[in-house]
Amino acid sequence: MAAAAAAGAGPEMVRGQVFDVGPRYTNLSYIGEGAYGMVCSAYDNVNKVRVAIKKISPFEHQTYCQRTLREIKILLRFRHENIIGINDIIRAPTIEQMKDVYIVQDLMETDLYKLLKTQHLSNDHICYFLYQILRGLKYIHSANVLHRDLKPSNLLLNTTCDLKICDFGLARVADPDHDHTGFLTEYVATRWYRAPEIMLNSKGYTKSIDIWSVGCILAEMLSNRPIFPGKHYLDQLNHILGILGSPSQEDLNCIINLKARNYLLSLPHKNKVPWNRLFPNADSKALDLLDKMLTFNPHKRIEVEQALAHPYLEQYYDPSDEPIAEAPFKFDMELDDLPKEKLKELIFEETARFQPGYRS
């Protein structure tokens, strides 16, 4: 834990890192770190609560700039109880001085990944967590956004079992017609939660990839272990087919990539493993919904509104309290091709509203 900075004593240090967030945020305490930044909790002297502050230093890398800009653009436009918001952003007053960006968010005690390492969940908890994931996802999908990296560590939890989806750095506007060349190379989302079509096709992607990830998360809540822990690309596919069985001819016809289709045709026939054999203690309604989410063919996979209306979630289902976005989200430009200098300018502009004396 960093010592509390005395008023006016300059930035606090946390594990050798400068955290320049005073005077409003003090009493910093280390939480963890990701690929390009550290997260601390801090005391907000204005709202009198502890908050989470993520320090991001992305400006050396085009990919990190892209992810940072995506996350900020999306989260500043989203407003939903099951999606983490941005409360404040701290950065230098000029673009030349801006080396880091500090993002202030609600402090959540833990995440689903940490929880599943230590606790076996009751059916009631599984049901409530799944409902909140789908409630947040309904809003995301209504904005025409794909999260693309749903996994237990991106689901934040607090002691009252509130759940918030975080990390929109890989999110995209849904565009089933656009052929994202190089899709697989830039697709760094965790393999275990990846839909089979991501490994088999490169053309376009749809909201059904997020539903697949939610199915993987439900299976993990039922058993405290990942359902498809593939060691590499082909191993991942083999794990999936080992449980779902061989795809039907109709399902194979959806695979545009001939090499991928021929690979699947070359494999020995596998039978589907019954879900109640894998999860003998699970609620039968939970397994019915799991089956509809972990469907090989993305066109037959359940959609988020149908999933919310499934009998497993009937005690929570309330369409009048499951809000959607006001308007579909649009990125003005494809960020993939922009140089990091341009992305830095866009991050600077996007964060201006939090600067003292800002006038829109």
Rank of each mutant, 00 (worst) to 15 (best):
A2D: 11
A4W: 02
A4I: 00
A7S: 13
G8P: 02
G10I: 11
P11G: 07
E12F: 00
M13T: 06
Q17D: 03
Q17C: 05
V18Y: 02
F19M: 05
V21L: 13
V21Q: 03
R24G: 08
Y25A: 00
N27G: 10
L28N: 00
Y30W: 00
Y30V: 02
I31P: 04
A35S: 15
A35Y: 12
G37F: 04
Y43W: 15
D44K: 09
D44L: 13
N45W: 12
V46R: 04
N47F: 11
N47V: 11
K48F: 11
V49S: 01
V51Y: 09
V51K: 15
V51D: 15
I53T: 00
I53S: 12
K54T: 11
K54N: 12
S57I: 13
S57H: 13
P58G: 15
P58L: 15
F59P: 14
F59H: 10
E60S: 14
H61T: 14
Q62T: 13
Q62N: 13
T63S: 15
Y64N: 15
C65N: 09
Q66N: 06
T68C: 01
T68M: 05
L69Y: 04
R70D: 01
E71S: 13
K73V: 09
I74P: 06
L75V: 07
L76F: 02
R77T: 03
R77Y: 03
F78I: 15
R79P: 05
E81N: 14
I83M: 00
I84G: 01
I84S: 12
I84F: 15
I86G: 01
N87H: 09
N87L: 01
D88I: 05
I89H: 02
I90V: 08
I90A: 00
R91I: 13
A92C: 01
T94H: 09
T94G: 05
K99G: 09
K99A: 05
K99P: 02
D100H: 08
V101W: 08
Y102S: 13
I103Q: 15
V104T: 02
D106N: 12
D106I: 00
L107P: 00
M108I: 14
E109K: 13
E109P: 00
E109Q: 02
T110F: 00
L112V: 06
L112A: 07
Y113A: 13
K114Q: 14
K114R: 12
L115W: 02
K117A: 07
T118G: 14
Q119G: 11
H120L: 15
L121R: 00
L121N: 01
S122T: 09
I126K: 07
I126D: 05
I126Y: 01
C127L: 10
Y128W: 14
Y128P: 06
L130W: 05
L130G: 05
L130D: 01
Y131N: 15
I133P: 01
R135L: 13
L137Y: 06
Y139H: 00
H141Y: 07
S142N: 04
A143I: 02
A143G: 09
N144Y: 15
N144F: 10
L146A: 09
L146I: 10
R148Q: 13
K151D: 03
P152S: 12
P152H: 14
S153Q: 07
N154L: 06
N158L: 11
N158S: 13
T159D: 04
C161R: 01
C161A: 07
D162I: 03
I165W: 06
G169S: 12
A171M: 04
R172H: 02
R172T: 01
V173W: 05
A174Y: 06
P176C: 08
D177T: 07
D177R: 08
D177I: 06
D179G: 10
H180V: 03
G182R: 13
G182C: 11
F183G: 06
L184G: 10
T185Q: 09
E186I: 03
E186T: 09
Y187A: 00
V188C: 11
A189T: 13
T190W: 10
Y193C: 00
E197M: 05
I198S: 12
M199C: 07
K203Q: 13
K203I: 15
K203C: 11
G204W: 14
G204S: 10
Y205K: 08
T206W: 07
K207N: 13
I209R: 09
D210K: 10
W212Y: 10
G215P: 09
L218V: 02
L218T: 12
E220L: 08
M221I: 14
S223M: 11
S223R: 12
N224F: 08
R225H: 12
I227V: 02
I227N: 13
P229S: 10
L234M: 15
D235T: 02
L237N: 06
N238W: 12
L241E: 11
G245V: 13
S246N: 12
S246C: 14
Q249G: 01
E250A: 05
E250R: 09
D251W: 08
D251V: 13
D251Y: 14
N253C: 04
C254I: 06
I255W: 09
K259E: 04
K259F: 08
A260K: 02
A260H: 00
R261E: 07
N262T: 00
L264T: 11
L264A: 08
L264P: 12
L265D: 08
P268E: 10
P268Q: 10
K270Q: 11
K272R: 02
W275F: 08
W275R: 15
N276D: 11
N276M: 02
R277A: 10
R277C: 10
F279A: 04
P280Y: 12
N281T: 15
N281P: 00
A282T: 12
D283F: 07
L287E: 06
L287C: 02
L287W: 10
D288N: 14
L289W: 02
L289K: 04
L289Q: 14
D291V: 14
K292T: 10
M293N: 02
T295L: 07
T295H: 06
F296Y: 14
F296V: 11
P298V: 06
H299F: 03
K300V: 08
K300S: 04
E303I: 01
E303R: 10
E303M: 01
V304H: 09
V304S: 11
E305M: 01
Q306A: 02
Q306W: 05
L308F: 03
L308R: 05
A309D: 11
P311W: 01
P311R: 00
P311L: 13
Y312N: 15
Y312S: 00
Y312E: 06
L313K: 07
L313R: 00
Q315G: 04
Y316W: 03
Y317F: 15
Y317H: 01
D318F: 05
D318Y: 13
S320R: 01
S320M: 11
S320F: 10
D321A: 14
E322M: 08
E322L: 08
P323Q: 06
I324Y: 10
I324L: 13
A325L: 11
A325G: 04
E326Q: 12
E326F: 02
E326A: 14
P328K: 05
K330H: 02
K330S: 08
F331I: 15
F331H: 08
D336C: 04
P339C: 04
P339K: 12
E341W: 03
E341Q: 11
E341T: 11
L343F: 05
K344P: 10
K344M: 14
E345Q: 10
E345H: 01
L346V: 07
E349T: 06
E350H: 07
F354G: 10
F354R: 11
F354V: 09
F354L: 13
Q355W: 00
P356Q: 04
P356A: 03
S360C: 11
